[in-house]
Simulated assay, not measured.
Amino acid sequence: MPGRDATLYSMTICFIDSPVGRLALEAEGEALSAVRWASTAEKAVGRPSPVLKEAARQLARYFDGKLERFDIPLVQRGTDFQNRVWRMMRDIPYGETATYGGMAMALGSGPRAVGMACGRNPLPIVVPCHRVLGSGGSEGGYSGGRGLPTKRHLLALEGVVLP
C-alpha cells in the first residue's frame, strides 16, 4: 500500500520461555519492536530474524544474571511524551530504581502521565519499566505478566530490595 511503512509487512515473531512466563519477541525489519507475554497457543510468524535471535540471547543472559544492559536496535512507536519517558527508563541503571514523581519532575509532567507511558511501553524488560516505583519506594503498578509479582521478580533478579 502506498504511504504505509514497509517494515510493518516484514514483522516476525518468536517465543522464549523465561522465569516470568512465555515471552513473544517481535521485530520490524532489523529492530526489536515488542516484548509481550504470550499464551502457549500462539505460534511463531516468519523465520526468526537476526535481531530476534540476538534479543532472545540477551534476554537469556539477563535472566541468568549475566547481562545488565541490552544492546539491540529498538523501534518504539509512541507519542513524543511516551518516547521521552521510554528514553528516560532506558537510562535507569540495572539494580537501581526511579520514581514516577521524580521522572515527572524531570519531564515537567505529572506522575500519573509517566505511569501511563510506562504502562504503554511496548518493550518491557528491555526498556525497564519495572524499575519505576511509586513514592516512598512503593511498588506502583505493572501491566506485564502476572502484574506486581512479575515486577517484584524482575527487581529481585537485579538485587533491588523493596521496603
Score class of each variant (00 low, 15 high):
Pro2Glu: 08
Gly3Met: 09
Gly3Tyr: 05
Asp5Gly: 07
Asp5Cys: 05
Leu8His: 12
Tyr9Asn: 11
Met11Asp: 11
Met11Asn: 02
Thr12Lys: 04
Thr12Glu: 10
Phe15Val: 00
Phe15Asn: 09
Phe15Glu: 03
Ile16Ala: 02
Asp17His: 12
Ser18Asn: 04
Pro19His: 09
Arg22Met: 05
Leu25Ser: 01
Leu25Thr: 06
Leu25Phe: 06
Ala27Asp: 02
Glu28Lys: 14
Gly29Leu: 12
Glu30Asn: 15
Glu30Trp: 05
Ala31Tyr: 04
Ala31Pro: 06
Ala31Trp: 05
Leu32Trp: 06
Leu32Pro: 06
Val35Thr: 14
Val35Asn: 08
Arg36Lys: 13
Arg36Ala: 13
Trp37Val: 02
Ser39Ala: 15
Ser39Gly: 15
Glu42Ser: 08
Glu42Arg: 12
Val45Ala: 15
Gly46Ser: 09
Gly46Cys: 06
Gly46Ala: 04
Pro48His: 08
Ser49Gly: 13
Ser49Asn: 09
Pro50Trp: 15
Val51Cys: 10
Val51Ala: 13
Leu52Cys: 03
Lys53Leu: 15
Ala55Gly: 10
Ala55Met: 13
Arg57Phe: 10
Arg57Ala: 15
Gln58Tyr: 04
Gln58Arg: 02
Leu59Arg: 01
Leu59Val: 08
Arg61Thr: 07
Tyr62Phe: 15
Tyr62Arg: 01
Tyr62Pro: 01
Gly65His: 09
Lys66Phe: 08
Lys66His: 03
Leu67Asp: 00
Glu68Met: 12
Arg69Ser: 00
Asp71Tyr: 01
Pro73Ser: 04
Pro73Asp: 06
Leu74Lys: 05
Gln76Asp: 13
Arg77Gly: 06
Arg77Leu: 14
Gly78Phe: 14
Thr79Asp: 14
Asp80Trp: 10
Asp80Thr: 11
Phe81Met: 11
Phe81Asp: 06
Phe81Val: 10
Arg84Ile: 01
Val85Gln: 01
Val85Phe: 04
Trp86Met: 02
Arg87His: 11
Met89Ile: 07
Arg90Val: 07
Arg90His: 01
Asp91Phe: 00
Asp91Ser: 12
Pro93Ala: 13
Pro93Leu: 09
Tyr94Asn: 00
Tyr94Thr: 06
Tyr94Gly: 01
Glu96Ile: 00
Glu96Thr: 15
Thr99Asp: 07
Tyr100Trp: 11
Gly102Leu: 07
Met105Ala: 15
Met105Thr: 13
Gly108Ile: 09
Gly108Arg: 09
Ser109Gln: 07
Ser109Asp: 10
Pro111Ile: 02
Pro111Trp: 02
Arg112Asp: 06
Val114Cys: 13
Gly115Gln: 14
Ala117Thr: 12
Cys118Asp: 06
Arg120Ala: 15
Arg120Cys: 12
Arg120Phe: 01
Asn121Gln: 11
Pro122Arg: 11
Leu123Cys: 03
Pro124Tyr: 08
Pro124Lys: 08
Pro124Asn: 12
Ile125Trp: 01
Ile125Pro: 05
Val127Gln: 03
Val132Asp: 00
Val132Leu: 03
Gly134Pro: 00
Gly134Ser: 13
Ser135Trp: 01
Ser135Met: 09
Gly141Thr: 10
Gly141Asp: 08
Ser143Phe: 05
Ser143Asn: 12
Gly145Gln: 04
Gly147Thr: 04
Leu148Tyr: 06
Pro149Leu: 08
Thr150Asn: 03
Lys151Thr: 09
His153Asn: 12
His153Ala: 15
Leu154Glu: 01
Leu155Arg: 04
Ala156Gly: 09
Ala156Met: 05
Leu157Val: 05
Glu158His: 10
Glu158Leu: 02
Gly159Met: 11
Gly159Val: 09
Val161Phe: 08
Leu162Asp: 14
Pro163Gln: 02
